[in-house]
């Protein structure tokens, strides 16, 4: 941007024409790029700055903008001393792990299998796995409500009929399980929906990562007598590391911003013992039901700090080599 290539290879001076040509040359690029920046300023930068401003004020969304009262850092200390805030953070972390780990543990081998084993049906199978990701959450929730329902659910009906099987039946519960209404089951149930929904997305990421691995490496390994699982262990996994880093980072951010699934599956209430209350849900509740915009804004910043720290840790864990850039450059 600072050194246009024109300076390196001198060109004959441009004959001076009218101001319009000059104007075009100078400003047209800025005008062409302005739509993005205008939209970004209005819908990206402004909300962030306004949120920062809000976080040090006391304000109820129902009263005018003139009613804001400066309160300093009180909103932050209030959040940090609020047991429910910490509970929501704990829930979010548990849900992020419960839903995040299985996603990747399923997606990587799945992508490997699809990449290796399927040739013609590959895109079709990939599309099917990707389908949940583009389906509306509300539609998904309706389906899972009928699956999870305590009295009328498909899941309980299935478990119940499995329980009728002699001998093996002991392994399955005799009573109906209240999946979304019992403390112990709320989080796993929500996590299950998230895993189901995002496995396809992660698989797609890994698939593109796998396709970037040159086929000669596998051929060479095969010539050396490596089995499929050895190929996976010694070629696929190390070379997939940058993709894993990306996918895990995205899951981490997504997991900590979890809102839709737990909100709908607990009817917005957070479920028994607030086990399904995530931080974003609590933030929404603080703004929407408690009418405390400043407190909610401060909560958003605290969550931002948490996500930022975790991304740093993730970066550290996968090492700089994880991104594949530094060592390659050296």
């Amino acid at each position: 941007m600072t050194a246009p290539p024109a300076k390196l290879t001198p060109t004959p001076p441009i004959p001076k024409v009218g101001g319009w040509d000059n104007f075009q040359r100078k400003y047209a690029p800025y005008i062409f790029i302005s739509p993005f920046f205008l939209l970004f300023f209005v819908f990206g930068l402004f909300p962030i700055l306004f949120n920062a401003y809000l976080s040090v004020h006391e304000w109820q969304p129902g009263s005018g903008l003139g009613d804001m009262k400066f309160v300093g850092l009180r909103n932050f200390t209030d959040n940090l001393t609020d047991p429910t805030f910490w509970l929501s953070l704990k829930n979010t972390a548990i849900l992020a792990v419960e839903s995040g780990l299985p996603q990747h543990l399923i997606a990587i081998p799945l992508a490997f299998a699809i990449n290796m084993g399927l040739k013609r049906a590959q895109s079709f199978i990939t599309a099917i796995y990707f389908l949940p990701y583009i389906t509306s959450v509300v539609a998904i929730s309706v389906i899972f409500f009928t699956l999870f329902s305590w009295q009328y659910g498909v899941l309980n009906a299935a478990l119940n009929s499995l329980h009728q099987i002699p001998i093996l039946g002991v392994l399955f519960p005799a009573d109906k399980i209240n999946w979304l209404g019992e403390r112990a089951f709320v989080q796993p149930s929500i996590a299950m929906v998230i895993v189901w929904r995002y496995v396809g997305w992660n698989m797609l990421l890994y698939l593109s990562g796998l396709q970037a691995i040159p086929g000669e490496l596998y051929e060479a390994a095969a010539v050396d007598g490596a089995t499929r699982s050895e190929q996976f262990r010694f070629i696929t996994l190390p070379l997939l590391r940058p993709t894993i880093f990306l996918a895990v980072t995205l899951s981490l951010i997504g997991g900590f911003q979890l809102f839709e699934e737990p909100f709908i599956l607990t009817n917005g209430g957070g479920g028994v013992g607030q086990a399904g209350l995530t931080t974003i849900m609590y933030m929404f509740r603080t703004y929407n039901a408690y009418s405390d915009a400043g407190l909610a804004a401060a909560m958003a910043w605290l969550l931002f700090i948490v996500i930022g720290l975790l991304t740093l840790v993730n970066n550290f864990a996968f090492g700089r080599s994880g991104t594949g850039n530094n060592e390659a450059a050296k």
């Binding site: 109820q60 129902g62 009263s63 005018g64 009613d67 009418s291």
Partner: peptide, 8 residues
């Protein structure tokens, strides 16, 4: 109750 607070 929500709209009662403030002066809207």
């Amino acid at each position: 109750a929500k709209f009662a607070e403030g002066n809207g």
